[in-house]
Every structure is written in C-alpha cells, then in structure tokens.
Amino acid sequence: MHMADALVAPAVAATMYTCSAVAAGYSVKKVKLVDDPKRIPVMGVMGAFVFATQMINFTIPGTGSSGHLCGGMLLSAILGPYAGFLTMIGVLLIQCLLFADGGILALGCNIWNMAFYGCFIGAMLIWRPMMRKGACRWKIIAASVIGCVVTLQLGAFSVCLETTASGVTQLPLTVFVSVMQPIHLAIGAVEGLITAAVLCFIYEARPELLWGINDGVDKKPGLSYKKTVIILVIAAAVIGGGLSLAASEYPDGLEWSIQKITGEDEIEASDGIYEAAASVQEKTALLPDYSVKTTDSQAGTSLSGIIGAAAVIALCTVFCLVFRLFRKNHE
C-alpha cells in the first residue's frame, strides 16, 4: 500500500504532510510526557523488529500464498498509539529512503494511510475498548483481526481518495475503490490473524508487555452518569437543532423509488382502513415531515429537530427505566 511519488500531486502531498505532522507533533508531546528514558531504545528496536519480521513469509493454510505482519497494530498493541505512531514513521522513512518502498513526497500520505489508522484508530478505538476489562486469547484475536481489517480498509480507501484527488488516474473513484477494498479485506484478515498469533504468544509469555490491558478494571468510569446524560442531551440538541438545517430536501431512498415508479412522493391510500389510519396519524403527529404543523420555515425545521431530539431522548430514557425495573423484578 506504499504510494509512490509519481501518484501524488504536490498539493495533495502537502495536505497529507500537514495532517501527518499534526498527528506526529501531538504524539511527540504525549511520548515526552511519559518521560521514560528507556522508551526510545525500545521504540527503535521494535521498529527494526517490525521491519525485519515483515520479510518473513507466513504460509496461509489451504491457499499456497503467504502474508506478513501488520506493523501498525502490533506496535500500538505493545508501545501504545503515540509511541507506535512515531516508530511507524521511522520505519516508513527508512523503507522509503533505503528500499524505495514509497516516495519521499508521498511519505505524508503513507504515514497517514498506514501509521495513523493502524496506530490511532486501531489502538484507541478497537484495541483499548476491547481490552479495557481484561484480556483473553479470543479478545486479542478479535481485536487484532478487526483492527487490521478496519485500518487496512481505511488506508486503502485513503489511497483511492489521494490518487483521485491528485488527478493521476482517469479511473473513476468508484471503480478504483471496488478494486482496492476487496483485495485489502483479504489482506487485512490474514495480517490480523498473524498479528493475533504473535500477540497471543506475548500475552501467554509476558502479558505485562501489552498496552492497554486492564486499564479500566480498577478505575471509575471517566464520566459520571449525570455528566454523560448532560453531554448526550447537548449533543442531541446540537445535532437535532443545528444539523437538521443541513438535512437533505431530496427524497430518501424509499421515497425516491416510489417517485420513480408512480411519479409521486407518496402512494395515496385509497382503501377505507388506510384513510382512517392516515387521519388518526394526521391528528396525533406533532411534527409532520419533521416540521411544526403551522410553519414550513427553516426555524420550524430547527425547532422540530430540537423537539424531536427531546422526544427520542425521553422515549429512550423511559424505555431504559422500564427495562431496568423489569430486570430488577426478574432478579
């Protein structure tokens, strides 16, 4: 997935360098905070390890082909996302300079596609949440495979976007994506299994080396129940009230299909039962078509969003309370 210089335009390269530099700057800051002098040599040797072991061919049973380790996921599972990200930068820089694996100008793209997703998305959103309440073999296998598949898919999609944005190929984005994604799905699954095998071995032999395991076992949750509810209410109000202004005025998928077949937005009910049901709905619906009955303005839509959000939150809360009550009674 290493991109060559010939495949990126200077503007795209500069953008991706900026994005990667921001992530690198943040990681440098975070790694410095740890202030462990032994950490840098460990990162260096781990980088060399990933580089060296990526050259081992692992036979995939029943296929006759072979795969290799997923560096980003392995590094972040051992060093953590920030140190893992910096180590991956080092590996990619050496691969680009010494082995022409990826270009100097495309380095920003390659860091983003391979290191950012692997280390940040893979470690923060997949590995850590799955390991928070303790690790076991199956959790490690699941986290590794899901992590590798998801991060490789994101990386492959980014390659398609960057190449298309560079105007290098006249291949439509959809066709490019339809070629790249399935290939990387298979690669991701295999890389995930290999990475899982190594991490399971480490878990059995030296579990203290794995990052993010048992992080949340003895800790209180980061946010209290009250704070979580307040944040959810604010988020719902912002999404419902603010973003509903940007909601599409075009018909949704079903409406579009109906429009294509009948030439109208909705199928008019002709039967007596349908008419009766429609009249009941008309009377009870506070917000027909997500707008306040009497107004059709933008403010009306926005107000509808806020009211809708409040209604959904209230409904969910009631549902959860009923569920809790039901469970308590059951116990």
Binding site: V28, I40, V45, A48, F51, L86, G90, L93, I94
Partner: peptide
C-alpha cells in the same frame, strides 16, 4: 523521530 530513525 530523528533518534528513532537512527536507532531503527
């Protein structure tokens, strides 16, 4: 990062 590259 420079130190890391050298070490790797």
């Amino acid at each position: 990062i420079v130190t890391l590259v050298l070490l790797i």
